[in-house]
Simulated assay, not measured.
Amino acid sequence: MKFNVTIDRDENGIWVVECPSIPGCVSQGETKDEALENIQDAIYQCLQVRAEHGLPLTIETRQIEVAA
């Protein structure tokens, strides 16, 4: 499965990665590569927990265009 993720840096320079289609699925790392590796494990574990609790595995996300 493929998931879109967002990548950002916090005020301390830590890379924060979030998977918007899985509520609460967030990870981080000292480098961008580390953060991306960590989110893969977080996605796997979030999907397992959601399945165990009978929750939908993902929520729908879309891209929209906003006129500036």
Rank of each mutant, 00 (worst) to 15 (best):
P56N: 10
S27V: 09
K2A: 11
V17A: 11
I14F: 06
S27I: 08
G24Y: 07
L55Y: 06
Q28G: 02
A67T: 02
C19H: 01
Q48A: 10
A51R: 06
Q63H: 01
G13K: 06
L36G: 11
N4H: 09
I39H: 03
I43E: 08
G54K: 04
G24W: 01
V49M: 12
P56H: 06
D41N: 11
I64E: 11
G29W: 07
D10Y: 09
N4R: 04
K2H: 04
S21K: 00
I7K: 01
I22S: 10
E11D: 14
G24Q: 01
I39F: 09
I64M: 01
Y44H: 15
W15F: 15
L36W: 09
V49T: 14
Q45R: 08
T61A: 06
I64V: 15
G24K: 07
I39G: 07
Q45E: 15
I22Y: 05
V17G: 05
N38E: 12
F3D: 03
I7P: 00
R9G: 00
Q28W: 15
Q45F: 15
E11Q: 12
P20V: 03
L47M: 11
E37Q: 15
R62V: 09
R50A: 13
Y44S: 15
A68S: 13
P23K: 04
I39T: 08
E18R: 11
E11H: 11
A51I: 08
R62T: 15
V26G: 04
D10G: 03
L36C: 11
Q48K: 13
A67W: 00
K32R: 14
A68N: 06
V66G: 01
V26S: 07
N38M: 13
Q28P: 03
G54N: 02
K2N: 11
V49K: 01
E65T: 13
W15V: 05
V49F: 08
A68W: 06
P23N: 08
R62M: 13
L36F: 09
I22H: 04
E37C: 10
V5Y: 05
A68T: 05
E65L: 10
K32L: 06
E60L: 09
S21T: 04
T31W: 10
H53Q: 14
W15P: 03
Q45L: 15
L47E: 11
P20T: 06
G54S: 01
F3K: 00
V17I: 09
A42L: 02
A35I: 12
I39V: 14
I59H: 02
C19G: 06
E11W: 01
S27D: 04
A42N: 03
Y44P: 00
Q45P: 00
V26E: 04
T61C: 13
G13Q: 09
Y44D: 14
L36T: 13
Q63N: 08
G29H: 05
D33T: 12
G24S: 03
S21V: 02
Q45M: 15
I22Q: 04
L57N: 11
N12D: 15
I7R: 02
R62H: 12
Q63T: 14
E65R: 02
A35D: 11
A42P: 00
N38D: 13
E37V: 12
G29Q: 11
A42Q: 04
S21W: 03
T61H: 03
E30S: 13
D41W: 06
Y44F: 12
Q28V: 14
N12Y: 08
L36R: 12
V17Q: 04
A42V: 09
V5R: 03
R62P: 05
C19R: 01
G24E: 04
C46P: 00
